[in-house]
């Protein structure tokens, strides 16, 4: 069950749009901020508030990598593997992170501290390769830089 406050916020955001369904993305993000990820129950509830079918909401949630479909750890490490980053070694970055964190991509460490994800373009091609940890960007990544960043998160 979404909290009253979350529902309130979703309703507030609906008011910004000409149609309820236009608020889908905002509503998903608001719910994710409360639950950490999008549960089946949350999706059903939001769909009912927005008066759209559950699968139509599911389409949006599944398309964007910024919506978590599974629970994530304290630090959500999201590596961009889209074209620019990929050309500048994003796959290597994922490999390094995977080794350092001891987890595969798409998975969470047993202590629930880190989740490693590959994500679509984060719009920071000029500073590729890059990643986002929770809400912060880390750019022009190198092996050494990664080590330093992770140290700061321990």
């Amino acid at each position: 069950m979404l909290s009253n406050k979350t529902i309130e916020n979703i309703k507030k955001t609906i008011a910004k749009y000409p149609k309820k369904r236009s608020a889908s993305m905002d509503a998903l993000m608001i719910a994710q901020q409360e639950c950490g990820y999008l549960t089946e129950e949350a999706l059903r509830e939001i769909a009912s508030i927005l008066d759209i079918s559950t699968v139509q909401l599911n389409e949006i949630a599944a398309f964007y990598t910024m919506y978590n479909k599974k629970p994530v750890g304290k630090y959500h490490v999201q590596v961009c593997t889209n074209v620019s980053c990929s050309l500048l070694g994003a796959e290597h970055i994922v490999e390094v992170l995977s080794k350092k964190l001891g987890t595969k991509k798409g998975e969470t460490t047993p202590d629930n501290k880190f989740t490693l994800s590959e994500v679509e373009c984060l719009g920071s091609c000029g500073t590729a390769p890059m990643m986002q940890i929770n809400d912060d960007y880390y750019e022009n990544l190198t092996d050494a830089k990664i080590e330093e960043i992770l140290k700061g998160l321990k």
Partner: peptide, 8 residues
């Protein structure tokens, strides 16, 4: 409205 394109 029971079907959708899920994923990318």
């Amino acid at each position: 409205k029971a079907l959708g394109g899920i994923g990318r």
